[in-house]
Design a protein around this nucleic acid. Structure first.
Length: 267
DNA sequence: AGAATTACCTGAGCGC
DNA sequence: TGCGCTCAGGTAATTC
């Protein structure tokens, strides 16, 4: 569920609180995430000072002098920052305790998240090496998108959700970007024209950037998922009138993902 | 190679 | 009240 904006906002929230702080202890409560949490984290991290927090796609990268702590929030993960040590709840699977008493807690009911340790460049880790261009940089551009999509038969929505095509675009923002670009999500990627690719690059950037600026479209925390009521034009709104033309929004499934679009506005 | 499908996991919501 | 079912979806692995 956390997509790029949610991860970016998490980074922005944590960086001022934790940068420069030293980790004193690490508590791991399960190794059974989608990938096992490396148990040696509890030995490696204590004593290290957090230098910086970066993001690549939906991965958070916590930089230390001797390596990187890499965290992916999966579907239901979130990072809670507590000012004091408090008893863990049911799905609190990792605690990172800092010297000033702050506690960074990883919570993930569905266990789709990932925690890794990289002793060298995390961008070369197999899970990150194949990630496509960052959508909010020039690396994501019309030329690259157009070229990569030629002769591809997969639906354009699934195409832009492919992390090797562009980083960090999940189901929610794929729906929103295609609505704004007036492109039907079930079109074969190879049929999307150059002008349409131009528009799509712009709308992908726009929906992500707007969401980051708003502090993400939703927050997933101990209170559950909280959506900004007017944040989405189509996501979760199948059967309701299109905000542009009033036509009933259509809901289909693409690659087993809920897909909503306006059959009138999107061609 | 690319497309399609499945697995991983648990909570919420629903029909009965 | 509770059982069984479906859905939610990021990503990797598997199959065709």
């Amino acid at each position: 569920m956390p997509e790029l904006p949610e991860v970016e906002v998490t980074k922005l929230r944590l960086a001022p609180q934790l940068t420069g702080k030293q980790i004193t202890s690490v508590i791991l409560r399960t190794a059974k995430l989608r990938l096992p949490i490396p148990p040696e984290l509890a030995d490696i991290l204590p004593g290290l000072q957090l230098q910086k927090i970066e993001r690549r796609g939906k991965y958070l990268l916590f930089g230390f002098d001797s390596g990187w702590l890499v965290i992916h929030l999966g579907m239901t993960g979130y990072l809670q920052l507590l000012s004091t040590v408090t008893p863990p709840g049911k799905h609190d699977y990792a605690d990172f305790v800092f010297a000033d008493g702050q506690l960074l807690r990883f919570h993930d009911p569905r266990k789709f998240g990932t925690i890794l340790w990289c002793s060298d460049d995390p961008l070369r880790h197999p899970l990150l090496a194949g990630i496509g261009p960052e959508p909010l940089t020039d690396a994501f551009n019309v030329d690259a998108l157009f070229r990569a999509s030629r002769k591809r038969k997969v639906a354009i929505k699934q195409f832009i959700m492919d992390s090797s095509v562009v980083a960090g675009v999940g189901n929610i923002y794929a729906n929103e970007a295609l609505f704004r670009a007036h492109i039907r999500p079930d079109r074969a990627a190879g049929t999307v024209t150059l002008p349409e690719c131009t528009t799509l690059v712009a709308t992908v950037r726009a929906v992500l950037a707007e969401s980051v600026a708003a502090g993400s479209s939703y927050q997933h925390d101990e209170q559950g998922v909280v959506y900004h009521p007017l944040a989405f034009a189509v996501y979760g709104k199948g059967g309701t009138p299109c905000t542009t033309c009033g036509t009933s929004l259509e809901e289909i499934r693409l690659g087993n993902r809920s897909t909503v679009f306006c059959p009138s506005c999107q061609v």
